[in-house]
Design a protein around this nucleic acid. Structure first.
Length: 221
DNA sequence: CTCTTGATCTTCT
DNA sequence: GAAGATCAAGAGC
C-alpha cells in the first residue's frame, strides 16, 4: 500500500509534508494537498468559506483526508447553535475566526466545526465528510470497520476516525494537532439542503464535492 | 433499496 | 423535561 507508514496514535504534525497522497484508492477527482491554510482564510463570510473548504485536506494528529462535504451555519439561522446567543457550549463561535468548535451530538457522537467571520458573528462550518487519505489503519482501528467509504462519511464518523473529542474544541486551526491544507485545483461543487435539522430546513447551505463516493448521503439531482 | 427505532447524555427551557 | 447539526441495526419490500 502507498501509505504503509502507519501513524501510531502518536502525534506527528508535519509528517504529511513528505507523504505521497495515500489514496490510489477508488477513483477520486480530488487534488493533492496544497499549502497550509492560515486563520485568515476563515475570516470572511461563512458562505464563501464553506464551499472553499471542499477539496481542502483536514488532518488531526496526521490522520484525515480531503473534505468532501460541509454545511454552513450562522447566528441569524434558526438551525445554528449560536442562534439564541452565547452559552458555555457555543461560546467559541462568538470569538474570532479560525478556531474549532466541537460539540456532543445525541449524547453519543462528536461533531467538528470551523469558526468563521469576524468576532461576534458566530458562524461556523460543520465538517460532514472526508475522503480518507492519511492514516487509514488508525481510522479503521478507531472506527472498527474496514471499508474506506464507511470511515469518514458523516460528521460523527469522521470525528471518531480522527480521534476528535471535546478536547479538540476551541483550538486554533493552523497549529498542531490540527492541520489544514488548501486545495490545488477548483473542484466541481454541488449544493443542497442540510441534513438532520428541523429548523430552516429549506436553506441550501450544504456543499459537496460533485460525484464523490465519500459523502454522508447523496445530493438529490 | 427505504424506513423505523434505540442508544445515550448534554444543553437549555 | 424535551430536543437534538447522528449512527447502526433490523424489518420490510
Amino acid at each position: 500500500m502507498a501509505w504503509s507508514g502507519e501513524l501510531s496514535s502518536q502525534f506527528r504534525p508535519d509528517s504529511h509534508l513528505k507523504m505521497a497522497p495515500a489514496s490510489k484508492s477508488a477513483g477520486t477527482a480530488a487534488p493533492a494537498p496544497g499549502k497550509p491554510l492560515k486563520r485568515a482564510f476563515f475570516d470572511r463570510s461563512v458562505h464563501e468559506v464553506a464551499p472553499d473548504l471542499i477539496g481542502a485536506t483536514f488532518l488531526v494528529g496526521g490522520v484525515g483526508g480531503i473534505i468532501v462535504e460541509v454545511e454552513a451555519y450562522h447566528h441569524t439561522d434558526p438551525a445554528a447553535h449560536s442562534y439564541r446567543g452565547p452559552t458555555p457550549r457555543n461560546r467559541v463561535m462568538f470569538g474570532p475566526a479560525g478556531f474549532s468548535y466541537v460539540y456532543r451530538s445525541y449524547g453519543i457522537h462528536w461533531c467538528a466545526n470551523f469558526v468563521c467571520e469576524e468576532e461576534g458573528s458566530a458562524s461556523a462550518v460543520l465538517i460532514r465528510a472526508l475522503e480518507p487519505t492519511h492514516g487509514l489503519a488508525a481510522m479503521r482501528r478507531r472506527r472498527g470497520v474496514d471499508e474506506v467509504r464507511a470511515l469518514c462519511s458523516g460528521p460523527g464518523k469522521l470525528c471518531e476516525a480522527l480521534g476528535i473529542t471535546i478536547k479538540h474544541s476551541e483550538l486554533p486551526l493552523d497549529r498542531p494537532p490540527i492541520a489544514l491544507f488548501a486545495r490545488t485545483a477548483t473542484p466541481e461543487i454541488v449544493a443542497g439542503v442540510r441534513i438532520g435539522i428541523t429548523k430552516a430546513v429549506e436553506l441550501p447551505w450544504r456543499y459537496g464535492l460533485k460525484g464523490s463516493k465519500f459523502l454522508s448521503k447523496r445530493f438529490p439531482r
